[in-house]
């Protein structure tokens, strides 16, 4: 059953609607991600759940409790901030103990809890360090420990990794996921990084202009975007319309108005190697390579098929390496990969 329930939440700043009738529900122990570019309303929604922003209409329930009108301190949520927001005047131990002290817990009661938490976040022996003596990654772990030590009903993560560099981001991301699964903590994670969202979440809520655009498991979101917005935001999807394919003179024209195709789903070959793809399951055409760029493990080709611009990713191999800029190429798009999109204006 749904554990967190958000019903018709709206919020306006001045005249700008930041959240428009947002509703969502989350199961207990689930890790969900609110994904979207800055300004899409994801942080506003998260802060509304924490009670740090008020909302104009709607309600928020956690378990059976209506928390819409509660002060942040009474909501039993844990939160990790982008800036960590560790208290600079307190060491690791006291930062983690802060929430328990605020509950009025006695020292002998909270000490074991804090020590257990320090172990969980892998900072044994660093309890006396002050935040400025720790690395960014360690600071973020302290922030996580501080949020978790009170065993909140939900954990809210507001872009917690964006201030870290790529490598630490990946390690810490996996650690967060592991800890979350161990504690079976219901978690709402906010990010603008689709890769992060795809690797860490049980479900992803893609947000756009204050509304939820699509909900689904990561593979579902990635392979079957429903709108042009999601297709463009999630990957480097090629998005084209019915008339564009028509003009490009493709071999088969699928049903629908607007389509999305992942760049790695398209097959590319030099002009004289096209026979394999002439069956009815492919839509084929001829074009010219405008640009070739090596992006690490894949090569990206920008191809022009009679005005239809396609981005195609291919793995390295000797045949592929023969394709250069200005090569004449054949392209083949599997019809199963050609996802029709809901048309939006």
């Amino acid at each position: 059953m749904s554990y967190v329930r958000i019903d018709n939440v709206s919020k306006k700043y001045n005249d700008l609607a930041v959240l428009k009738n947002v509703s969502l529900s989350i199961k207990e122990g689930e890790f969900i991600t609110l994904l979207g570019p800055s300004g899409c309303g994801k942080s506003t929604l998260l802060r509304a759940i924490a009670g740090l922003n008020d909302i104009d209409t709607g309600s928020i329930h956690v378990g059976d409790k209506d928390i819409t009108y509660l002060y942040p301190k009474d909501r039993e949520v844990g939160m990790v901030f982008q800036s960590y927001a560790l208290f600079p005047n307190m060491n690791v131990y006291n930062n983690i103990a802060f929430g328990l002290k605020m509950e009025g817990m006695k020292k002998e009661h909270y000490t074991p809890l804090v020590e257990e938490m320090i172990e969980l976040i892998d900072l044994q022996g660093k309890g006396n360090r002050f935040p400025h003596e720790l690395s960014g990654g360690q600071q973020q772990r302290v922030a996580l420990g501080r949020a978790l030590v009170k065993r909140p009903k939900i954990l809210l993560l507001d872009e917690p990794l964006s201030a870290l560099d790529a490598k630490i981001r990946r390690t810490l991301r996996n650690e967060i996921r592991k800890i979350q699964q161990r504690l079976k903590m219901t978690t709402i994670f906010v990010t603008h990084d689709q890769e992060e969202a795809l690797t860490i979440s049980d479900r992803i809520f893609v947000m756009n202009h204050g509304t939820i655009e699509q909900v689904g498991a990561p593979e579902e979101i990635y392979t079957s975007p429903k709108t042009e917005y999601v297709a463009r935001f999630i990957g480097n999807y090629n998005v084209f319309s019915h008339s564009e394919i028509l003009e490009a003179g493709m071999s088969v024209i699928p049903q629908g108005e607007l389509f999305a195709v992942r760049p790695e789903a398209i097959v590319i070959a030099l002009d004289n190697h096209t026979k394999d793809y002439t069956e009815a399951t492919f839509m084929t055409g001829m074009g010219w390579v405008n640009q070739v760029s090596v992006l690490g493990n894949v090569i990206r080709f920008d191809v022009d098929v009679n005005g239809l611009k396609l981005t195609i990713d291919a793995l390295h191999d000797t045949e592929i390496h023969k394709i250069k800029e200005n090569s004449k190429v054949a392209v083949a798009i599997p019809l199963t990969e050609c996802k029709p999109l809901n048309h939006r204006d």
């Binding site: 009670g51 740090l52 922003n53 008020d54 909302i55 819409t68 009108y69 509660l70 002060y71 942040p72």
Partner: peptide, 8 residues
């Protein structure tokens, strides 16, 4: 803050 009370 919830919805800000007049008291606050």
């Amino acid at each position: 803050m919830g919805r800000k009370g007049a008291g606050t």
